[in-house]
Simulated assay, not measured.
Amino acid sequence: MSWSEVVRIPADVEQPDKIVWGFTARQVVILAVTGGALYLAYVTFGEEIPPAALGALALPVAVLGILLAIGTHDGISLDRFALAALRHQRAPKHLVTAPEDVPAPPGWIAAKPGPLPAPLRLPARGVAGDGLLDLGPDGVAAIAEVSTVSFALRTPEEQDGLVAVFGRWLNSLSGPVQILVRAERVDLTETVTALHDSARQLPHPALASAAREHAAFLSELATRHELLRRQVLLVVREPAVGGNGRASAAARAYRRLDEAARLLGGCGITVRLLDAAAVTALLASCFDPTAPPLPADGPAADDAVIGRGGRR
């Protein structure tokens, strides 16, 4: 005899469990601490303070405890939001790239004293020559650019096939992975310049006129609208374990990207690993999207001397 039981699984699988009267363990602890503090205050000062005054003092504390327990802000519980706001308020606001703590200025400088800048601690130590992000003791991260497919234009059978392929890849994951969809501005200056240059070499005047008209259309389009390009990135992170941790982590990251390229290739998606120059340009654009692109030969080395004629 076999039987089955229907169990409802919430859409958010990371949602905390309800343990008492629909409250989570965190909410129960907050309410218990609030109730205990109010009871202790009543036992201590109940005979010295009139009940009306004691109730007026206890009401804001009770309301605050209830709000901290059940209230949320942008999907974050109010107690965690308050702790994050407190940490942000106490944290230094001016950060600089320094290997250690910033020393205080000497006493002979006649300057108005103020808060010292703090060293900027980034999770990434740098970009290695193979394009991997060096995360220090946390291992490495590999970034790949992923193409897209049009899901809405497919037939229901093709959509089921795409979902099945994507599900097989998700079930094959053996470590943390991140899918990042970002939008970046598109600069058509090089395209317009290339059209004007190629128009002079076209064999027929009609082709040259069409090329110049298309260049004018692109120039007007870039002037009237803010053009954006969507980029899909696949980030794979592997921890460094053991004495040869970095090399083994890099090998595992490459193997996972190869497996993703093999599985996602079944639905027409290509996975291309970014090299060191592409990763550096990507990080620079994420920090400052409005900055001009990096030079073709990459950033200067730490010991390079940069003069008016370029680096030496």
Rank of each mutant, 00 (worst) to 15 (best):
L132F: 15
D303N: 14
H88T: 13
D297S: 12
L207K: 08
A128D: 06
A216V: 00
Q231A: 13
I9L: 13
Y39C: 12
A284L: 00
R200A: 07
E47A: 15
S77M: 04
D258H: 10
L122I: 10
L95M: 11
H196R: 12
A82H: 01
A253K: 07
P103G: 08
P60W: 06
V236I: 14
V146D: 02
R125Y: 11
V149Y: 09
P117L: 14
T270S: 12
I306S: 05
N244G: 14
S248V: 10
V271S: 03
R224G: 01
E157R: 13
T290L: 13
P117V: 13
G307H: 05
V96T: 09
L263T: 15
A128T: 08
A211F: 03
W169M: 12
R230N: 04
L257S: 06
A144H: 02
E184R: 09
T193A: 15
R224E: 02
N171R: 13
L40N: 06
T148W: 01
P16Y: 10
T223P: 01
D17K: 11
G71Q: 05
G129W: 02
T193I: 07
G71L: 06
L95E: 04
I30G: 01
T34I: 04
D297H: 15
L188W: 00
G126M: 03
V192E: 01
A62Q: 04
V20L: 14
D275T: 05
P123N: 12
G175C: 10
L153W: 09
I19D: 07
R26G: 08
R182E: 15
A253M: 07
A110Y: 04
I109Q: 10
H204P: 02
Y39D: 09
T270K: 11
L263G: 05
G298V: 09
A142H: 07
R125M: 13
D138G: 00
M1S: 13
F23S: 10
A128G: 09
Q159G: 03
Q201I: 02
R229G: 15
H204W: 04
A62R: 00
A278M: 03
T72R: 15
V61Y: 05
R168K: 14
L234A: 02
A211N: 03
A98S: 14
L195D: 00
Q178N: 05
G161T: 12
P92L: 04
G298Q: 03
R125H: 11
R87F: 14
L263P: 03
P115V: 03
P105E: 14
T97C: 11
L228W: 02
A110S: 10
Q89Y: 13
G131K: 14
A144K: 04
G22P: 06
E145V: 04
R224N: 05
S285F: 00
G136Q: 07
Y254I: 03
W169Q: 08
C286Q: 12
P123H: 09
A11K: 11
V279E: 02
L162Y: 11
D17Y: 13
R87K: 13
H88D: 12
L283A: 15
L120C: 07
E190H: 07
H88N: 09
E48G: 01
G65H: 05
L132G: 00
